[in-house]
Write a protein that binds this DNA or RNA. Sequence first.
DNA 1: GATCACAGCGAAAACGTTTTCGTGTTGAAA
DNA 2: TTTCAACACGAAAACGTTTTCGCTGTGATC
Lengths: 340, 340
Amino acid sequence: MKKRLTLKLIAKELDVSVSTVSKALRDSAEISEDTRQKIKAFAKLYNYKPNNIALSLKNRKTKTIGVIIPEIVHHYFTTVISGIEQVANEKGYHVIICTSNNSFDKEVINLEILANGSTDGFILSVAKETQQKGDYHHLTEVIEQGMPLVMFDRVIDEINCDKVIIDDMLGAKKAVQHLVEIGCKKIGLITTIDYVSVGKLRTTGYREALKESNIPINENLILKVEDFDQSESEIQAFLKDKKVDAVFAVNEHFAIYAIKALKEQGLDVPGDVSVIAFTDGELSKRFMPSLTTINQHGEEMGAQAARLLIRKLENDEAEDEPFETIIIETSLVKRNSTKR
Amino acid sequence: MKKRLTLKLIAKELDVSVSTVSKALRDSAEISEDTRQKIKAFAKLYNYKPNNIALSLKNRKTKTIGVIIPEIVHHYFTTVISGIEQVANEKGYHVIICTSNNSFDKEVINLEILANGSTDGFILSVAKETQQKGDYHHLTEVIEQGMPLVMFDRVIDEINCDKVIIDDMLGAKKAVQHLVEIGCKKIGLITTIDYVSVGKLRTTGYREALKESNIPINENLILKVEDFDQSESEIQAFLKDKKVDAVFAVNEHFAIYAIKALKEQGLDVPGDVSVIAFTDGELSKRFMPSLTTINQHGEEMGAQAARLLIRKLENDEAEDEPFETIIIETSLVKRNSTKR
DNA sequence: GATCACAGCGAAAACGTTTTCGTGTTGAAA
DNA sequence: TTTCAACACGAAAACGTTTTCGCTGTGATC
C-alpha cells in the first residue's frame, strides 16, 4: 500500500519548501523555470493529486452539491438526478445523493449532516411527511446559514428560495384538452387526495379544461384514491358501470390499473375508452397498449435546478438577486392508449 | 447570513481555550464539571455542529463511500443503491453516487476525483466500455493506494477485491427448470451476444438445465440479440413459426417484446406459451400479463456490498483477510406469464 | 562603492478539528 | 515547611493545502 503523495513529501524529496512546491505546481511566476520543471516532472512521475479535503477546508468550498430526494427507486427522480449530474459534472461539481424515504426525520438528519461542511448547497424535493407536517425549520435554518437551496417538483411555497417545478395544472389541461379533441365527452379523473399538492393542481387543470370546453363537471367521474396500496381495487370499483369514454390518471400506475379494470369489463383501450397518464416512465413505453402520457421532462428539471444552484454558488452578486421559479413545460406524448 | 459556529468562536466567547472547548464537548475527564456544563449549554444554545471537512482532514477518514454505476436511470441499480444507502447510513456513512454512463473515460475520471480524499472506499459496477476495453489500470491504482473496493454485478475476475454477484447461471437454470416442470418441451432462449458476461452465464444455465432434463439443445431456439435498439424486430423475426411452448428471456424488455410478438401471432401467454424473464422490475409486476421472473434482489446485493466495504474500512485486521465473493441467491417469482 | 530593484525562495498563518504534553494551582501527606 | 499527586486547563502540533510576507543574494544604476 503506497502512501499518498503530499506536497510535504515532494518538498522533502526535492529539498525545497512546501510553498515552493505548491507555487511551482500552480505555475506561479515566483518560481524559476528550472525548479518549476523539476517539481512538475516529479509530481507527474509519481502521479501527485492534491487532496480534495484539504482544499475544501482551505477554500471553504467543497465543490459538491447535495441532493435529497424522497426515494431513489423511482424513475422520475432518477431522470432528475441524471440531469443534475450532467450539469454539475460539466461545471466541476460532484453530487451527493441522499434519500429521505419520505420520512421527515430522515430528511432533517440528512440535511444537517450534509450542511456541516460536506456540500456547498442543496437541491431537494421534500418528503411527503414533511409536506403533511408543515414543519420547515430545517430548510430555513440551512438557508439562514447562507447555503443556497433549490427546491424541485414538490416545493414549499412558504420557503424563499429558487424553485423548479412543472406546470401541473397546464399539463393536466393539455391532457384533457387532447381527450376532448379526439372526441371524448365523458372523461373520468383518477387522482390522489388533496393534500398532495401535485394531485390537487392536476385536478384543477382537469376542471379548467372541461370548463373551457363547455363540458359540465360531473363529480361522480372524479376518484380521489385514498390508500395507495388499495388503489387497484378502488379504481376497479370506481370504473364499474361508469361508462366513461376516457380516463385521465395522475400517474402511470393509476392509468394501468384503469386499463386493467376496463379490459376486465370487456372494453377495449383505446377503442372504447382512451386513457392518458401523467408522468412518462419506462412503464408507459412498454405497456400494451403503450400509454399516451404527459411527459414531465425530469432531466431538464434537474439540469435547470443544478444551473440555478451553481449560479448562486459561483456568482457573488447572484446571492442578492431575487429568487427565481422556473417552470418546466410538459408535453403530450401520443401513443396507443388514446384513439387518433 | 449567520456565520457558522466554530470551536474558536465558542472559546473566545467563553474566554477559554479551543482545546478546553473541544474536550468539554467530548466529555473529557480533564475538564471540570462546571466549565463542561457551561460550554455544552452554550454549544447547544447556538446549535454548534462540528465541521465535517475539518474532521475528515484530521482523521484521514471521510465516512463516505463512493458508488460508481453505469447508469442511474435503471431500476435494478436504484434498488442496489437503496440497499447500499440503508446499510451505510445505519453505520454512519454517507454515499456519493456517480454514473459512468457506461463510458470508460468517465469511469476513470470519477474514480480519480473521488479517490483524492473524498471517499474512504468504493462500490462499483464497471461500465460496458470498460469491460470491452479490458483496461483496468484505474481500478488497480485505487486498490494500490489502499482504498478498499467492492465490485458488484458486473465484476472483473482479474481484479483482486471483494465482490458481490448473483448466480446468473443458477438463476437461469431455475427459470428453465420451472418451465420444464410445468410441462414445456420446446423452450426458446432470448439472450445477448456473448461478450456481455451476464448474457453468457445465463445462456450456460439454460443449456445445463436442458441437459439435466434430457432435452436436446436446439441451436435454432437460441437468439443472441445483436443490436439492442433493433431487439424488437429481431425477436419478432426469431419467434416467427418457431412453435415454442416457452421462452426464457435474459431481461424484462426481451420478454415483453416476445410477448408482443407472440400475441401478434395470435398466441396466448401463458395459454399457448409460457414466458419467464430475468430481472424483476416495476415492468414485470405491472405488465399484462404480469411476468414470472427471476428476482435478482438488488437491495440485498447493495446491502452486502456495503457491509463488505465497511468491514474493511473499520477493521484493521480485515485489511489482510483474503477477498470474499458473495453470491446472492436469485429466486423465482411466479406470476401470470407462465401456466400453472 | 553605495543604493536599489528584483528574482527566487522559505516561514508562517490560515481553514476547524483532536490530542499530546506541559504547566500552574490546590490540598494533603510527610 | 517541603513534597507530591491530582486537578483543570492551555499551547502547540498535526491533517494538506494556499497565500502573504519577509528574507537573501544578484546585478544594474547612480
